[in-house]
Simulated assay, not measured.
Amino acid sequence: MAAPSKPAESGADLELVGITKQFPGYRAIEELDLSIPAGSFFALLGPSGCGKTTTLRLIAGLEEPTSGRILIGGSDVTGQKPHERPVNTVFQSYALFPHMTILENVSFGLKRRGVSDYKVKAIEALKLVELDHLAGRKPSQLSGGQQQRVALARAVVNRPALLLLDEPLGALDLKLRRQMQLELKTIQTEVGLTFLHVTHDQEEAMTMADTVAVMNRGRIEQLGAPQELYELPRTAFVANFLGQSNLFTGEVLEATDALIALEVGGRRVVVPAARAARRSGQVTIGVRPEKLLLHLEEPSLDGVNTLGPGRVVDVSFSGVSTQYLVAVPGVGQIIVFSQNLVHGAVINRGATVWLTWSIEHGFGLEDIAETRPHFDDEASAPGLPGVVAEAV
């Protein structure tokens, strides 16, 4: 039996080299290369079926790759069994021993390994998650959030080189989940371990991670800091999966070192050349809903793009903001998020509006997004030809 790799107190870097995973009938992972620096909080984000959980299971040793290598702290662990790897996993199901106390749960692994001061280390881990005062209770006497923190303490107490988090907050309610997001990030900073967090929750990934990899169909679509991915997505998938985006496809009218201009809905729309991946032919550009402003009269402003007129076909109040759905002839339906600075919606359904956004807030994609339906039926919106009268 191979000797377990030695855990690093400050975490270890993880490297996946040409990882492929073939299941009968389909390929879950396609030539995946990934490098995660030691001590970082890394999120693998994507929809169900994209391959993120398979990737985690490969790293944990619960699955074997069809090809490729897995290195932790520079050591090749591809052929090692799960218990031989310097890795611990925290699952969505807490997997605590119901007949043991919290202290016994956390110290279980240490005790089995013959660590002499296992109780002291277990108490330290419980203090880290602020549950040392509940050490004598059973799991059934704790809330869901408390049980998840116990599971985290049990994983951290072993000081693994790498901690894998598999949708760990999915079973919690919204308020507790947001609280735990902040606590997890604080704990990761304090213990200095390398965290790999697998999730489908965009907010969760962006709140906690230093780096996010958006995964799609067994490949990493884009990787970077959360703000970078949000402000400058490279593909339509990333633009729509990480938050919401308004995407417009049009023919390039002009391309210079400074800007790219397209025709969208009969208007000239500009994006900075530095924020665009394509410069000729059909190009898809986008803008986030919160970057848009609504106007009841056609504006005449410098340094902005303008679309319209359109009609507000839906208004949804969500607390901190109001979502407007605006149908624009020849363009489609555009989403606008407006912060509630007064008492909710300030523009009513049915209003005629124009939309503007700063040129610097636009981005251009590498691929071409599917075109939205253009509303060419004049009967669809009485009084404003070409606009639908209801939201889809």
Results as ranks from 00 to 15, higher is better:
212 V>D: 02
212 V>S: 04
213 A>F: 09
213 A>R: 00
213 A>N: 04
214 V>C: 07
215 M>G: 03
218 G>H: 02
219 R>A: 09
220 I>T: 06
221 E>Y: 00
224 G>I: 00
227 Q>P: 05
228 E>W: 01
228 E>S: 13
228 E>V: 01
228 E>A: 14
231 E>S: 14
233 P>N: 14
233 P>T: 15
233 P>D: 14
235 T>R: 14
236 A>Y: 02
236 A>S: 15
236 A>P: 04
237 F>D: 07
239 A>S: 11
240 N>F: 05
240 N>M: 07
243 G>K: 11
245 S>E: 03
246 N>A: 08
247 L>G: 00
249 T>K: 00
250 G>T: 06
251 E>Y: 04
251 E>L: 05
252 V>T: 11
253 L>I: 11
254 E>G: 02
254 E>L: 11
254 E>F: 08
254 E>V: 09
255 A>L: 04
256 T>D: 10
256 T>A: 09
256 T>W: 12
257 D>S: 12
257 D>A: 13
257 D>R: 15
258 A>I: 10
259 L>P: 00
260 I>R: 01
260 I>P: 00
261 A>Q: 14
261 A>W: 04
262 L>R: 03
265 G>I: 10
267 R>P: 02
267 R>S: 13
267 R>M: 12
267 R>K: 15
269 V>H: 02
274 A>D: 14
274 A>T: 12
